[in-house]
């Protein structure tokens, strides 16, 4: 990994983390654990298509780890499970989608993020009925995910070709 690439990754991680921290200040519309806009996913989706899987994984893990460190509380396993689930489906979507379909990637990856979160919550608390949270997370998640995907799409269209690594 050359210095330029490393710097760019670090920059993206910092941006993602900033978005994450700002988003954490927005009050939840409903008291549902795990419910959020997921704006930091703009960076992940963008990185996946602009930089490729290896760098994306680094950015994602750093962001999730540092985010949970800054936010306090032990929600790391949930965001990590969600993040990795989201990452895995993106590996597949990367092959299927064109650069004009990043909004799909946003929506679908948010679905898998929620599935990962809920699965981890069920595993940790041994409470199968937590699966009830899934539709309540998915409905706003898909809507927000479509928009974050769209944001990443515009970002890639305007920025993607100008970055030479």
């Amino acid at each position: 990994m050359n210095v330029k690439r490393l710097t760019f990754c670090a920059l993206l991680t910092a941006i993602a983390l900033t978005i994450f921290m700002v988003e954490a200040q927005i009050p939840l519309p409903a008291p549902i654990p795990g419910l959020k806009l997921g704006l930091a996913n703009i960076v992940t989706v963008y990185a996946m298509f602009a930089l490729g899987p290896r760098d994306t994984l680094l950015i994602l893990i750093s962001r999730v780890f540092l985010g949970s460190l800054f936010a306090g509380g032990s929600t790391l396993p949930y965001s990590m499970a969600g993040g990795l689930c989201c990452y895995l489906i993106m590996l597949l979507l990367r092959k299927l989608l064109t650069v004009k379909q990043l909004w799909v990637c946003g929506a679908v990856s948010s679905i898998f993020h929620n599935i990962g979160q809920v699965a981890m919550a069920i595993f940790i608390t041994k409470t199968p009925s937590l699966i009830l949270y899934l539709p309540f997370l998915l409905i706003p998640g898909i809507v927000a995910g479509t928009f974050t995907g769209l944001a990443a799409q515009f970002l890639l269209q305007r920025l993607g070709s100008r970055i030479k690594l």
Binding site: P33, S74, T75, A121, I124, T125, T127, S129, L130, Y133
Partner: peptide, 15 residues
């Protein structure tokens, strides 16, 4: 009530 009460940071669920 539709959803169990969940406190994920503390791993506490009330159903």
């Amino acid at each position: 009530t539709l959803l169990p009460i969940a406190c994920l940071p503390n791993s506490l669920i009330v159903e």
